[in-house]
Simulated scan of single mutants.
Amino acid sequence: MDAGFDALKTWEAVREFALSLPETREEFPWGESVAKVNKKVFVFLGSGDGGRAPGFTVKLTDEDVHADALAAPGAEPAGYGLGRSGWVTVPLREGTPAVEVLCDWIADSYRAVAPKRLAARLDGSRPE
């Protein structure tokens, strides 16, 4: 068991990455943080309020990536019918993939909803 896993630190890292993507802004509909591009949500950033684990929800259109995300501990298709469109909710807990993998999923979700001109600018956007 990895006693060093810090869900809040991981959440902050994925939030920071999401907000670093081209022309992204953060909004707070329904009391939760979301990252949007071109007025479209590409990641819901659940902070863990209400006794739930911090986590996020992303849209993954590649079948293999979608399957990998669903294999993360506690991951499931998103509620409210979003799961049918490829949205996956990933709680941040023991056994969660590395931040780099989580950021890849967020980038994939961004590509799924961003205009092509913005999605093309992603190369090299991840901080070292």
Rank of each mutant, 00 (worst) to 15 (best):
L70V: 05
G86E: 00
P54Q: 05
G31I: 00
S47Y: 05
V37L: 07
G46L: 08
T89L: 10
G79N: 10
D49I: 14
P54C: 01
K40E: 11
E63N: 11
A72W: 01
A98G: 13
P73I: 03
P127F: 10
T24D: 04
L21D: 01
L70M: 15
P73F: 03
V43A: 08
T61L: 09
L19R: 00
D68I: 09
R15F: 11
G86C: 07
F56V: 11
A71Q: 06
G74F: 01
V101C: 04
A119S: 13
A7W: 00
Y80M: 12
K59M: 08
L122P: 15
R15Y: 07
E26L: 09
G50A: 08
P22D: 02
F44Y: 13
P97G: 07
V14F: 05
R93E: 12
G48S: 07
E27T: 06
D64Y: 05
T10S: 11
R117V: 12
F5Y: 15
P91H: 15
T57H: 02
F56E: 02
A53L: 12
L19K: 00
K116F: 04
L122E: 12
R25Q: 11
G51E: 14
A35V: 13
A107Y: 07
A107V: 10
E76D: 11
E76K: 15
A114T: 07
D49A: 14
R52M: 14
L122D: 09
G55S: 08
A119W: 11
G79W: 07
K116M: 10
G124A: 07
S109G: 14
F56A: 02
E26R: 07
G51W: 10
K9F: 14
A98Y: 07
V101W: 06
E63G: 10
A53Y: 05
